[in-house]
């Protein structure tokens, strides 16, 4: 057997850099709703980031914001936010952004 494949992983098991490679799927394209943050209500508690399944909430210093390239639109952040600072808005309302 002639192997033409160039290894993706340096390790035997599938270890990767969680800051980059873990976010490797185009999960943003799955989204039908996106989280919109009311910064006035947000007190930077970080629960949204803890609960986010693809772990795509970016720490902006005094609030968190979903990385829309990976946000699947599941709405868990909006459900978990104790201050109701996140609202899920249908993607259709952002249609002009493509």
């Amino acid at each position: 057997m002639v192997i033409k494949h160039k290894n993706i992983f340096k390790t035997e098991s599938a270890w990767s850099n969680a800051d980059e490679k873990l976010l490797c799927l185009d999960t943003g394209s799955w989204r039908t709703e996106r989280p919109v943050l009311d910064k006035e209500k947000c007190n930077y508690c970080g629960l949204c980031a803890l609960y986010c399944p693809p772990q795509c909430m970016k720490d902006m210093g005094d609030y968190f914001e979903a990385d829309l390239a990976f946000c699947k639109g599941c709405g868990i952040c909006a459900t978990e936010c104790p201050r109701k600072a996140i609202t899920m808005v249908p993607e259709g309302e952002f249609a002009d952004e493509g």
């Binding site: 494949h5 290894n7 993706i8 992983f9 098991s13 599938a14 270890w15 990767s16 850099n17 969680a18 800051d19 490679k21 873990l22 490797c24 799927l25």
Partner: peptide, 17 residues
């Protein structure tokens, strides 16, 4: 150190592992 194991397994990542 933010590293993870077992994910990133679509297509060739899966095949290689």
């Amino acid at each position: 150190v933010s590293i993870g194991c077992g994910t990133h397994g679509m297509e060739m990542g899966y095949v290689e592992a």
